[in-house]
Amino acid sequence: MKKTLYSLVAGLAALLFITSCKKDKTLSNADVTPVTNLYAPEDAKAVKIPSGASGSVSFEWEQAHASDNGLVLYEVAFDKEGGDFSKPLYSVPSDGNGLYNKLTLSYSDLNKVATIAGAKPEEIAKLIWTVRSSRGVKLSASAAKRVISVQRPVGFESPDAVFVTGSATEGGADISKAVKMKKVGDGKFEVYTSLKAGTYQFVDAKTGIIKKYSFNGTRLVEDGETNVTGDTKVVKLEVSFNDALFKSTEVVKLGLWFSADSKIWFDLNYAGNGTWTADNKPIVFHQESWGRDERYKFRFTFKNADGSTTEQYFGSTNRDNSAATAATAPSYYYMVPVDNSVYDYTFKFNHDLDNKSADIKVMMNADVAAYTHTVTLKQ
């Protein structure tokens, strides 16, 4: 009895499914009325998109009707002011995968539409929008349309990766050798590199569709190149896409600072790719009443745009540490900006190094998980 009941239910479900499919196929060709009235936003609405802010704009309209009283699908189309929507700049289904007579369009997507319309950051794009209704096949365009003015934010949509390329860079004009910048925050990237006479620009990819950026003063701008003159210099380049900011700072030198002596023991030489080295350097701990002191950190000297210099210490993420050993994890050597205190946030040399020589390497590039350094006993 149960088997018969199950077979009957299964057969009925299959019949309903087939009938539904045939019915949907027929309904997809039903006539749909065009949308008559647009409700929101009001005509000539002005929208200023804030930099880095989340938000949206709501588009609403009167419902359309299908000749068979079935469900209607909607999409909103955008075009430049004066356009006829024959080739819209952008179209998107309404909320609910096209089922609702409402569209919640994010600031990010609205910024994309303004960008497609040709507006640069902070410029205003005058757009028109309308609604097209359908049963999934034939679109019924509304005769109603409205204007919306969109002012793009000061910044850019942040790319997933950023590279520096050009004749002035370490990788040269060959974009396949572009130097990758390190992501250090939301929309923020930086790189320690050298620049020689020539040109350079920032790109978001090495292949495919590539967006290019340069700078004008302290502002990041689309396209263009930056000229470099004079001798080769080591620099720190910083870009922030959210607020379109750019900064270039010359790196004068990097030294190993020994706490007990409260001075730089020796400078490291720049070796390319954000890396500094010092080879075969003597390591002699400081004798204290309680034992041998082995604490150290690093100090950068930067040259500012006005010619003044700034010192920045890089040390441990920990305020205090045990001495390094052969079993110490690589993360022990990670370097972060720290204060100029004598003994806090310092590293401690492996005790095997006392009265020996060592090779020191500092790596400030995108190849490492975090800015770091190594200390290798010289045999």
Rank of each mutant, 00 (worst) to 15 (best):
324 A>G: 10
283 I>V: 14
304 N>Y: 02
290 W>V: 15
328 T>E: 03
286 H>S: 15
321 N>G: 11
366 A>G: 09
349 F>C: 04
342 V>T: 09
341 S>C: 06
361 K>Y: 05
328 T>Y: 08
298 F>R: 01
354 D>I: 06
294 E>N: 14
304 N>K: 09
297 K>D: 14
283 I>S: 12
310 T>L: 13
356 K>T: 07
292 R>K: 12
290 W>A: 10
332 Y>N: 01
301 T>S: 04
301 T>V: 11
350 N>L: 05
304 N>R: 07
322 S>D: 13
289 S>W: 14
292 R>D: 10
282 P>A: 15
288 E>R: 01
354 D>W: 02
368 V>L: 11
292 R>Q: 12
329 A>I: 06
279 D>R: 15
352 D>A: 13
360 I>L: 15
370 A>V: 14
302 F>L: 14
297 K>L: 10
298 F>N: 02
363 M>C: 06
335 M>P: 10
294 E>K: 11
281 K>C: 10
305 A>V: 01
344 D>A: 07
281 K>N: 04
365 N>R: 05
359 D>A: 13
350 N>G: 03
292 R>N: 07
290 W>P: 06
316 S>F: 01
329 A>W: 06
351 H>N: 09
335 M>D: 01
306 D>G: 05
353 L>D: 00
370 A>C: 09
303 K>G: 02
359 D>K: 15
305 A>H: 03
291 G>T: 06
299 R>M: 10
280 N>S: 09
299 R>W: 05
333 Y>D: 04
327 A>G: 02
338 V>L: 07
345 Y>E: 06
361 K>N: 08
286 H>I: 03
351 H>V: 01
355 N>F: 12
289 S>R: 11
340 N>Q: 13
351 H>L: 00
300 F>Y: 15
362 V>T: 03
346 T>S: 10
285 F>Q: 02
300 F>Q: 11
342 V>H: 04
287 Q>F: 01
303 K>H: 00
